[in-house]
Design a protein around this nucleic acid. Structure first.
Lengths: 335, 335
DNA sequence: TCGATTCGTGAAACCGCTATCTCGGATTCT
DNA sequence: AGAATCCGAGATAGCGGTTTCACGAATCGA
């Protein structure tokens, strides 16, 4: 097999410096203890040849790639981007790079994808895996070290980090309740999605605890367009407040409502979830629950780093969303 | 050196199947032409051992990693995220993964970072490099194959893709001019940034071509907060229209203006740049220039794929932003 | 002064896989 | 039937590093 790249190898440097590859390796890794003059010759030769060690070669010999994989359902989603941003920057501090894999929202592809990319990295962060529990549990076993984000329902054999959407949406509901609303409508996300399920669960719990509240449900989705489409259905329920699955839906909904001459929050209150940067600039500014996505990435790396050093990774964490009251909620009209 | 991972190797499979590693390799890569019975034994053994080939080993032997590096100034920036999303999804179709590197907006770190990560991948996409031309040009030479995004000023020895902000902002200015505006104010980005420079250049050219136009400039930045901070300065110019460096700034600016009781577009028109998803939901909906960030990523991969196959990469492309007229612009009050 | 350490460096094995070369046995041709 | 060809699969040599082990020279103690 001929040489693939034009780059110089450790043997080239060794030959030029008149030493053995072993010595070059030692010098390059500051493990050299012999004659300073030899070390100098090696560094000089390396410099002249523009040599830098092949990461691949090192990885194979060392059994470590200094890379972690990040598997995510959709890189286009701003929430996941925030997680990635936090993860990538923090990992970089420790000399680790992130390899990304987008499963394109296909739950059935996730296990293979994760397994494949795991082979290219030292560990994997599974972000909001869509696959069912019966596939996730064994996968988590087999792919360690691994950190799971946003699957708080399972007890897994790996560190888990999550946002407590269930509690978050209850806080939102409570906020509306405190304002006097008794008839709410939930603009749901995709029926089967895990994130939607937690919200539904939270609302069910809330309804159970507050028997004087009625919570209708209309089909929505996850995008602004879905919010726009949901507007007529929301109005038809005659609810005094709408809880959208996330900020994107809420903003689309508010937009469509105002186009129909419905005033937010006078005629109807609207809430979101996530507190994306634009929530405060919508009109009216959106009351929502703030979710620390970047911190999720940062904490994920913290867990990962501990795992990679064979240290205890620390406790699992569930971030509690915080209600940000802005202009899109107010007491209901009649009360 | 002891075995690092608990994973089974090609030799394990070979031993179990009673064949040589070479045969296993052939079977795993569909290059096997011999007895079907042998192939079966191999696949069975591989299956029993839960074997999957080490990517590292293959990479080293093959001299190709099936990964490309993506170097970007700030992964937190939605524009770059869009590029990454387009790039990653398209590359995945061809079996390539993306390794990300965030230079944290530090131009001086970029060359080293790019060189380092280049060693881990088959190629690199340099996205909006901040480093000066005298460092970029030799770097591009040494890191090939490589694609550069958003440095249209240089003629580089690599495929280049870019957004023509210079023309984009002129189109915006023209739109305002056509509405009757003659006194504009530009809310600038960071002074030294390349992206700001092109906008300034475009506006200078526009001013030169339209001597009856006055274009003031106030300092801004790149975020919504910067737009908010710029509001009083914008008002002080008494311009009839404000051209913000990007949508984030424009939205912050509009927000601050409306809080001061200034009506957009009645009292002053405001424009942005990028057409982020929320531009259409701001109030009023933002007139802006639409920029195809995802396509930038897609085209980057197309170039890259050609390069990796030693084919001609096709022509460089400069995407022309398209003005999206929405509610934030109107004829000036007095005219 | 001679044997026992210590020290500096090289040789060689190995990480896991692929590709080339080789060779014995089966098949084909004359 | 004997020679020529083919074919299946193994042995082997890397890919570019790291690390263990070994060995000769220098240093030490007696």
């Amino acid at each position: 097999m001929a040489r693939r790249t034009g780059l110089s190898t450790i043997s080239d440097v060794a030959a030029r410096a008149g030493v053995s590859p072993a010595t070059v390796s030692r010098v390059m890794n500051d493990r050299f203890a012999g004659e300073p003059e030899v070390a100098e010759r090696v560094t000089a030769a390396a410099h002249e040849l523009g040599y830098s060690p092949s990461h691949l070669g090192r990885s194979l010999a060392l059994g470590t790639t200094n890379a972690i994989a990040f598997v995510v359902p959709d890189l286009g989603n701003p929430m996941f981007q925030a997680v990635l941003s936090g993860l990538s920057k923090t990992a970089a501090h420790d000399g680790y790079r992130v390899l990304v894999a987008d499963s394109a929202e296909s739950p059935s592809d996730e296990p293979l994808l994760a397994a494949e990319i795991r082979r290219r990295a030292d560990a994997v962060v599974l972000c909001a895996p869509r696959m069912p529990a019966e596939r996730l549990v064994p996968l988590v076993q087999s792919l360690q070290p691994l950190v799971v984000i946003n699957r708080p329902d399972l007890s897994l054999s790996a560190p888990a980090l999550a946002i407590d959407y269930e509690s978050g949406i209850q806080r939102i509901a409570q906020h509306l309740y405190d304002l006097g609303h008794r008839h709410l409508v939930y603009v749901a996300g995709t029926e089967r999605s895990v994130s939607n399920r937690f919200r539904v669960k939270g609302l069910d719990a809330f309804a159970a605890a507050h028997r004087d509240v009625r919570i209708d449900r209309v089909d929505g989705g996850v995008s602004s367009a879905d919010g726009i489409a949901a507007a007529p259905h929301v109005l038809r329920t005659r609810a005094t407040a709408a809880i959208a699955m996330n900020d994107l839906v809420a903003i689309g909904l508010m937009h469509a409502l105002s186009q129909r001459g419905v005033s937010v929050p006078r005629d109807i209150s609207v809430t979101g979830m996530d507190d994306i940067p634009f929530a405060q600039f919508s009109s009216p500014p959106l009351t929502t629950a703030s979710v620390p996505h970047v911190e999720l990435g940062v904490e994920a790396w913290r867990r990962m780093a501990a795992l990679l050093r064979d240290e205890p990774p620390g406790y699992d964490m569930i971030f509690q969303p915080r209600v940000e009251v802005r202009g899109s909620t107010a007491p209901p009209r009649s009360s």
